[in-house]
């Protein structure tokens, strides 16, 4: 069977969701790098399509714009201080961030799309922008109408008149994501520890601008290692537990930031070690450890980015975990005797 690709794609670190058009159905493909999983939705079973705009677009626009401004400020700072290495580094970061902002703005507002089928509602993750939703609707509408026949807006309104709108519908919302059952409750202890240690690490890194005393270096090394170990422990801990997606994303971001800064830092340190030709090759590690950010502009730029990102992630993560922990405490335990609004009506009493 020949499939034609429909607009829209959701791409993650190891997962990609796409939508394909078949003869009598659409095919939702969820693929990681090595396998593809398929779900078929036949036109004869289509009951409805609900597209809801989300706030992700404006949030991402805000964060990326702030990052662009920060990178621009660092670039100007480097130019005024004639640090060519830092200027190149900040220029690359600025270019990357500006391009990603441009792409984000061009793709337009974000949304979630739910397809109503008999007995179940399915999310179509590939339709994550309103633009794609409109394009997909334009493509599939005539095909569904060919199978099911047309229906006018007046007919829909008259047939829906009997239904009473209610707020306890089981459709997922931005604050009420569908979760697989049997998720364990979790107090976010490891997350708090991770974000707290990240802030300590940022402070230790900042202290290196003023002194490279061995105690500060050692503390920074221990804090950095602790953040790395804690980020792994947090990722293990959060899988299969009731943790908001935002906090999960922040944990992944910490690990990504650590990996990126270590790789870039290692490369910079290595090249500086090579430049210092009087140093024997075996002493590169000690040269890297003794690097002073106040004398090495590239290291200073990297440290600045690391401190800003650490404070940003640490404060945001701590605030989010605190809020999650307090909201979890406020939840009424089952069997506490308090009545749940609407429970009596639901039971037909």
């Amino acid at each position: 069977m020949a499939y034609i690709r429909l607009p829209g794609k959701k791409k993650g670190f190891y997962r990609k969701c796409t939508l394909w058009l078949g003869e009598d159905h659409i095919l939702a493909v969820d693929s990681n790098y090595y396998t593809e999983n398929y779900k078929r939705f036949y036109f004869k079973d289509f009951q409805g399509l609900i597209v809801r705009e989300t706030k992700r677009f404006s949030k991402l626009r805000l964060y990326t714009s702030i990052s662009v401004l920060l990178a621009l400020a660092l670039l100007l700072f480097a130019i005024f201080n004639q640090h060519i290495g830092s200027a190149v580094f900040s220029g690359i970061a600025l270019a990357g961030l500006t391009i990603s902002l441009g792409i984000h703005l061009k793709r337009g507002p974000t949304c979630v799309c739910h397809l109503m089928m008999p007995l179940a509602v399915h999310e179509l993750p590939s339709i994550c922008r309103l633009k794609y939703a409109r394009q997909v609707l334009e493509r599939i509408l005539p095909l569904v109408q060919r199978v099911q026949g047309p229906i006018s807006a007046d007919e829909i309104k008259s047939k829906l008149e009997g239904a009473v709108p209610s707020s306890h519908i089981n459709l997922p919302t931005s604050g009420n994501k569908p979760r697989p059952g049997n998720l364990k409750e979790y107090s976010c202890f490891f997350h708090k520890l991770l974000f707290g240690t990240l802030l300590l690490d940022a402070a230790a890194t900042l202290a290196q601008f003023y002194s490279i005393h061995w105690t500060i270096k050692t503390f920074n090394l221990i804090a950095g290692s602790a953040v790395f170990i804690l980020s792994i422990a947090t990722l293990v801990r959060q899988s299969g537990r009731s943790v908001p997606r935002m906090i999960k994303g922040l944990s992944w971001s910490v690990l990504a930031m650590l990996c990126a800064s270590n790789i870039i830092g290692g490369m910079i340190g290595f090249f500086i070690g090579i430049q210092k030709s009087n140093v024997p090759q075996t002493d590169h590690l000690s040269v890297m450890l003794a690097l002073d950010p106040s004398n090495e502009p590239l290291i200073a730029t990297l440290f600045t980015y690391y401190i800003i990102a650490s404070i940003f992630l640490g404060v945001w993560g701590l605030a989010a975990t605190m809020m999650h922990a307090s909201s979890a405490k406020k939840k009424v335990p089952v069997g506490s005797g308090e009545s749940v609004p609407g429970a009596a009506e639901g039971a037909g009493l």
Binding site: F46, Q47, R52
Partner: peptide
């Protein structure tokens, strides 16, 4: 997409005959 008059969220709903 049409705005919800209460919270401003934009929606687009398409209902097909199989729904009824």
């Amino acid at each position: 997409p049409v705005h919800c008059e209460n919270c401003g969220t934009r929606f687009q709903v398409k209902v097909f005959p199989a729904f009824f």
